[in-house]
Simulated assay, not measured.
Amino acid sequence: MGGERAAAAQRYEWVDVARGIGIVAVVIGHVWSRGLPHTLTYSFHMPLFFLLSGYLFRPKPIVAFARSQIVWQGLSYCAFLALLVAVDTLIEGSRGGRGIFHTWPQDLGRLAFGGSKLRGPFTVFWFVPCLIFARILFNALAARFPDPLGKAWWFIAPLALAVAYLLGWATDVSPLGLLTVPMALFLLWAGAALNVIGWRGWMLWLLPPLSIAGLFFLPALNMKGGDYGWPLLSMAGAIATSLLIFRASHWGGGVLKPFSALGRASLVIMYLHVPVIHYLSYLPRPWILALATVIPLLVYYLLNLTRPTRTVFLGQPK
């Protein structure tokens, strides 16, 4: 039993490490809004999270899962959104200005629309609603077609990919991040398929060239706006880089272990790092990077102290 628990802990440890590396990449990409650090991180960071979610996914009862996602993850989303509206109003008011949302009740419509209407310190709020609805859709399909390598998915996955590109070319308007749901669905499937396939030796030959191409030669991604770079190629590079990070998280052991704490706090860092960057933009970028990582990490530990804050902000009812 002890050995089984240790093996399970090790499995979860690499997941936290991979999340930690991913969230650091997200922060770097927002601290450096242009240049090589921005391009490198934007070539893979958001696909990594969708792939990892798919890799860990197990089909659940459709209605209960949808309810759980909407209620608990939706509660967390609304709580952080309300918190940041209040913080932005206080900070901008102390400077003699006005918060981003200051025309009430008209601004309630912008907040409810979310997605492409949320910018500045709220710019990352597209991600969680997109993930919620993509996971609900994926779960409903997986309940009907549980084998991600089955024939049905070889029709569904390319269809989702085609719809993603068509919508991305047609518009960048995205209520609640829903524009990105078809691509998120494809990546969830790709992660689940990887879990079934497992690591193969040939991947060590195929993935590095694809990753290098994605990092240095192909256009980067802007998933929020439905911009997926060069069709198929940029996303293939993103998937390759993400899979290599997953493998490095397995192999890294103690060297990469510090990333696991950031991985466990990745949801809070996702919500809060951009406000830290926004309000401390006058500092040198290395300082902003450190503070945009550490401050949300400390907030995560504070939220973990009580059951009400875990429930409301972290979406953990128990």
Rank of each mutant, 00 (worst) to 15 (best):
A6L: 14
A7C: 02
A8N: 02
A8I: 04
A8D: 11
A9T: 05
Y12T: 04
E13R: 15
W14A: 13
W14F: 00
V15S: 01
D16G: 02
V17P: 03
G20I: 01
V24L: 15
V24S: 03
V24I: 13
V26Q: 01
V31Y: 10
L36V: 12
T39G: 04
L48M: 15
L52Q: 06
S53K: 05
K60Q: 15
P61T: 02
I62T: 14
A64T: 03
A64C: 00
A66C: 10
R67Y: 14
S68A: 14
S68Q: 11
W72T: 05
S76Y: 07
L83K: 07
L83G: 14
V85M: 08
V87H: 08
V87T: 12
L90W: 12
I91S: 09
G93L: 05
G93C: 07
S94D: 04
R98Y: 12
W104K: 14
P105I: 03
D107I: 03
R110Y: 09
A112G: 05
S116V: 08
K117M: 08
P129D: 08
P129Q: 10
L131V: 06
N139A: 08
A140Q: 04
A140H: 06
A143Y: 04
R144L: 13
F155D: 00
G168Y: 04
W169Q: 12
T171K: 11
S174V: 04
S174Y: 02
G177P: 07
G177F: 06
M183K: 07
L187W: 01
W189N: 10
A192R: 15
L194A: 13
N195F: 00
V196C: 04
G198F: 00
R200L: 03
M203A: 11
L207C: 06
L210Q: 13
S211I: 00
F216P: 02
L218R: 14
L221C: 11
G225N: 14
G226H: 10
G226M: 06
P231D: 10
S234G: 08
M235V: 15
I239K: 03
A240F: 01
A248N: 02
H250G: 08
L262G: 05
R264K: 15
S266I: 03
I269Y: 07
I269C: 10
M270V: 10
Y271D: 07
H273F: 05
I277F: 00
L280M: 14
W287S: 13
I288W: 01
L289H: 06
T293C: 14
T293I: 14
V294D: 06
P296V: 11
L298E: 08
L298T: 09
R310Q: 14
